[in-house]
Design a protein around this nucleic acid. Structure first.
Lengths: 355, 355
DNA sequence: ATCGTTGCATGCAACGTTGCAATAGTCTTT
DNA sequence: AAAGACTATTGCAACGTTGCATGCAACGAT
């Protein structure tokens, strides 16, 4: 036996299928005695509504998807966890999927089973262009995370990466550092994160009158610890030893930190290190890591609030006419651009140990 | 417009709905000319098969679920990432959900939308008892991860935690340590992980003739860094200072490490630290962390291989009769218990820096 | 010329659910 | 007592898909 259906319950309770459905959905127009009988039958048969049929008929699954490049990156892991909890408050179940930054897979997830089954999607695009995302704007509601902008056509939540990078660089400058490297440049990536952070970095240098040295701007292929460590080794071995480094992610920073310590440098005395993301590892490492902390809980909350607004509109289920001749009276709400808060968290990797 | 259906395509191509379905599913019995015409219509209308309808009718969604207590724990993050990749090789899309160890949520995910929509589930149970999991054994195929055993009624993949813990403890003993603490005891948790690791720890002590000191077995409420740090501080302040510590997770170990360094201890000279899980943070920290490395890729691969075996059996869709009078001829394959490999990875936190 | 065979295309039904509209039954009102 | 108002319950249809059976040609073999 695979699971009782409304029909099975109806037969057992001696009522029609429709009445059982009314009980299940808590419609008021059911006599107490009938309700009781039906509920007992539901209980006895262990009825669970069939999610596929509900989705097909009503157009709503109660599921929301999160599409991120890497589940195992601490930043996305923490964000995913917060989104799961925020989704619960809306009565949704959040499901997470990983693209590994593969554009084909990003497309597949949007068009295929997960993208069709969920009521809404939160996505951190890596390689798929805004133009392509726009093309499917009238499918399931979508909220973008991250720096990539969809020309104001899709809801979008991010932090002000330019300002944040400038603050972080400014903090290093304020400590008296002058040879400040940047690790995390990714010139060939559509995703605008690295672009914005290098912009903020340069702005801060210019504002302080520090000449900008291209040899201190280190490219990486990914944002992992190994990439940060490699970039730091290149800096140290290339004779361009900096006195501070701003890394575009905490993972890069932790890798750079490790490489610097291996090289015999004292942190922060010889080298101040600042990251971006405020992941848990940075808080418990030795030395602990100064970083830019995006308001992750705020990002999660506001992304889902965008989805909630769009889901107030009727679903595309069986009832809804989808005749293009008669445009629906109320237009969809305009796309929002939300800028979440961030703050600089100063720890041992730039100011040394307190006490 | 929400998306073209088979009907729309059929009208445009001037054929029946059934023929379009035949083209979409690559059935051979279609004339080349017809196929061409239909394919063009498919292209023009950007047809995407409706996942909900397919699932309802055919009983297969192509989705597989992973249910874990915490997405943001590095161990589960790394495991999830490997499972996503392994699932791709089977042609499945893996979706991840998080329970936070809440038993109600574990049940909800199994019975509700995600559990019904996926073709199979991989789960790391935290609080739901084996008995309860057994109750639903004939629903969607399920594979359990972790130490909790379901009495051989459900497929199950784990490492030999007793042996692994004994090896780790044996390594510390082999370094000449005698006051070896254990951090991570969780007596009131159904989930058997902590039980097995403390068993292995005690076995190794006994085998070496070292008396077992209950004051060195530290309980924790969760497996996070903060818990490890707290336990270590208690050990150090309580006057029971150990010369080595075996932590039941790398996160605990990293917290303990940090607390020990804060306390002025030298690692590994004053205190050797060993963890469990081999998460990336441990590899790049300073000092790097000695740990038990479960074969995560092997766990992922074999969990999915179990699912694949069960999914060879016909789905419970429209075609399949589900008459309990006539039991299906072939019984389901018996539940498997798979023990994945592990190995001890020795790093700086127990043997100091090389060179 | 007739029969079976093969290749291609189609119609019907069903998966489990819910919106809509209609029915039967009860109670109030005049 | 009849008309109206309301309550409780039900039947029908449809969401988009696919399994099964059938239809309908055209073909070669007898």
């Amino acid at each position: 036996m695979v699971g009782a259906s409304l029909k099975d319950v109806a037969m057992r309770a001696g009522v029609s299928v429709r009445t059982v459905s009314n009980v299940v959905n808590d419609f008021p127009q059911v006599a107490p005695e009938t309700r009781r009988r039906v509920q007992q039958a539901l209980e006895e048969l262990q009825y669970r509504p069939n999610a596929a049929a509900r989705l097909l008929r009503a157009g709503r699954s109660g599921l929301v998807g999160l599409v991120i490049p890497e589940i195992d990156s601490p930043y996305f892991g923490e964000l995913a966890s917060l989104l799961v909890q925020a989704a619960q408050q809306y009565g949704w179940t959040l499901l997470v999927d990983q693209t590994n930054g593969d554009p084909d897979r990003e497309r597949l997830l949007l068009d295929g089973p997960p993208g069709q089954i969920v009521d809404g999607l939160v996505m951190s695009p890596w390689a798929v262009s805004p133009a392509e995302l726009r093309r499917r704007a009238d499918a399931v509601p979508l909220v973008l995370l991250g720096e990539q902008d969809a020309a104001g056509l899709i809801d979008h939540v991010s932090v002000d990466s330019v300002a944040a990078a400038a603050e972080a660089t400014g903090h290093l400058i304020g400590l008296g550092r002058r040879r400040i490297a940047a690790i995390g440049v990714q010139p060939h990536l559509a995703n605008g994160t690295a672009q914005q952070r290098i912009t903020g970095y340069r702005q801060a240098l210019r504002a302080a009158g520090i000449p900008h040295d291209p040899a201190l701007e280190m490219p990486v292929t990914a944002l992992h610890r190994a990439d940060g460590a490699r970039a730091m080794r290149e800096l140290l071995e290339g004779g361009h030893a900096p006195d501070a480094v701003f890394c575009f992610s905490d993972q890069l920073a932790l890798g750079a930190l490790r490489a610097a310590l291996d090289h015999g440098l004292a942190v922060p005395d010889d080298l101040a290190v600042c990251g971006f993301d405020d992941i848990e590892d940075g808080r418990y490492g030795t030395p602990s890591l100064t970083t830019v902390a995006p308001d992750k809980a705020g990002i999660a909350e506001r992304a889902l609030s965008c989805l909630a607004d769009r889901l107030k509109r009727p679903p595309t289920g069986a009832g809804r006419r989808r005749d293009p001749e008669v445009p629906s009276g109320d237009a969809p709400p305009p796309a929002r651009r939300i800028v979440a808060a961030h703050r600089l968290v100063v720890r041992e990797s730039t100011v040394g140990r307190p006490g």
